[in-house]
Design a protein around this nucleic acid. Structure first.
Lengths: 299, 299
DNA sequence: CAAATCCAGTGCTTTGAAACGCATCGCTAA
DNA sequence: TTAGCGATGCGTTTCAAAGCACTGGATTTG
């Protein structure tokens, strides 16, 4: 029952070895002991009649033959993944699948609590790994290391399918005691006179959708504070005269907890289109489809 | 050390099951007992949460999900094959590889005995499966079921690399007692007056290179006999006035055994270009390269 | 209609590959 | 020198998978 006398499972060992270039770390990643991993490597060596890795100082240097396999092997395992997850019958109630999702803390705050609650009921076995989007996200997506990428339309990768999750309007948020908000709305003049709190994520100064848009407008604002999370910004305006522009849903969420006032943006401001994106090869992944639809229902 | 909790070796079982649509036959093909195969199937079922095959009378009917996997799975295993044989270090002295070769009995007779002899010395573990070329050969090649296809230039598949093995001239062969050959050569007039033995292989009347060429010439011959093997034709001319056009090397081989005379074709006749062809994905297969070079040396 | 066949699935036992823990050795780099 | 890492040895353990014998359903045959 072997394929050409090769235990195909050894290929996953080889893949991880090529990634880690270390027997010990590969062993850790696969949850086996170091000797077990070493044995797997020696089986691979025997099969291929090739050292595959040579010890050089503390590093395991892959041989040319091993390196040649790296990419095709990754693709191969990716293909297996696709083949297998596509046909695996997905039953939310019993599945113990782990989804890896890249999403902003804005979404984490406004839709994921409800999602978690719902999944707890209808899919208790399912777990989610949420990571912050960064410059590497698209790369992760390409490698199939990511199941879902939820992001404003501007950031979607052109190589993968994307669907509209929802449209989100922006509002101006300030302290409830700020006289600017006395009429229930604020003026454009007030807006640009006030100090602002803006959100910038990551070292690369990935500005949020709202920021990007505001900067392209010709008016100048005084940015008094930059924070790295959408969830912090509203905290910063309380008891000050500062303003911040944020997602309407998030503002409403905080309205219950903080002494904040909400007003419409006093000039034309586009809505943000939040997209949900998945790997191109996962079109037929029923489990993923299910999750997307769940998220959409809550979006 | 598993890939997503799946024993990858089960995929080969699934592949064979899809091919055979029978647990028993699949078991035979993989040299395991029928219950072992049945157990493998049930493991697959459990993993996919899918029946995969349903028993209907005596047949195992694959479900839609199983059918969807058939092709991708085949391709996948083909990829594994390529990946693995490319990097497997090939040592003729110890290799026990089996090569599958499609070639005419002409070549079998003139180069393979010497090849077999040589391999016996330098590569005792290697075995060769030689099959007759037919309409299905190209298909076999496409599916990667064939390592080498040796054939006249006219029959090579455009989809795969082909290299020139040798050029082969044709000669006229007749009985040694045939007066036509008295001068060491025969005349064009004699040639067309005589009765001929021609070779046609397969039911589809796949004519040999020489036949195809002769037919396009405007002169008529009297075909007194058709045989299905290049090796039989010379036998048929002995003690008769019949002629046959055949490969020079083969004629020389038979000259030692039969009472035959050899003469040049008494008119312009092109040489045949014998090509050796292998699957496009096997360009880097060192073992195959080695065998090709061995054959070329003897060609 | 009964008998014979065929074939997938099941229960039980056996086995063997591989993992583990632990120790050790040899090597290299800091 | 010390620390880190890979390979190796050894006895133990484990558990998946194989084999064998059998069941039961369905089809074909006499």
């Amino acid at each position: 029952m072997r394929f050409k006398a090769l235990d195909l499972n050894l290929l996953v060992a080889l893949d991880v070895l090529l990634d880690e270039q270390s027997v010990t770390r590969a062993a850790e990643r696969l949850n086996v002991s170091q000797p077990a991993m070493s044995a797997a490597l020696s089986r691979l060596r025997e099969y291929f009649g090739e050292p595959l890795f040579v010890l050089h100082g503390k590093r395991m240097i892959p041989t040319a033959a091993a390196l040649r396999m790296q990419l095709p092997l990754k693709e191969l395992l990716q293909d297996v993944d696709v083949l297998v997850t596509e046909t695996t019958h997905f039953d939310p109630a019993t599945s113990d699948r782990r989804f890896r999702i890249a999403t902003s803390d804005f979404l984490l705050a406004v839709v994921f609590p409800a999602l978690a609650q719902r999944l707890h009921k209808i899919a208790p076995g399912i777990t989610m790994d949420c990571i912050q989007p960064s410059e590497l996200t698209t790369q992760l997506m390409d490698q199939g290391e990511l199941d879902l990428f939820i992001t404003p339309e501007q950031q979607v990768s052109p190589d993968h399918p994307a669907e509209l999750l929802f449209e989100e309007r922006y509002v101006v948020v300030g302290w409830a005691g700020n006289p600017m908000f006395s009429g229930g709305k604020i003026t454009e003049e007030d807006f640009f006179r006030a100090g602002h709190v803006v959100v910038e994520i990551g070292r690369q100064a990935r500005t949020s959708f709202a920021e990007t848009h505001l900067r392209t407008s010709n008016q100048e604002r005084r940015i008094e504070m930059k924070v790295s999370s959408f969830l912090i910004a509203p905290e910063m305006v309380v008891n000050t005269m500062k303003l911040t522009v944020m997602h309407q849903r998030l503002a409403r969420l905080f309205a219950n907890r903080l002494e904040i006032a909400i007003a419409e943006v006093p000039f034309d401001f586009p809505a943000m289109r939040e997209m949900i994106q998945y790997h191109q090869t996962r079109v037929n992944d029923t489990g993923l489809r299910w999750l997307i639809d769940e998220i959409k229902q809550l979006g």
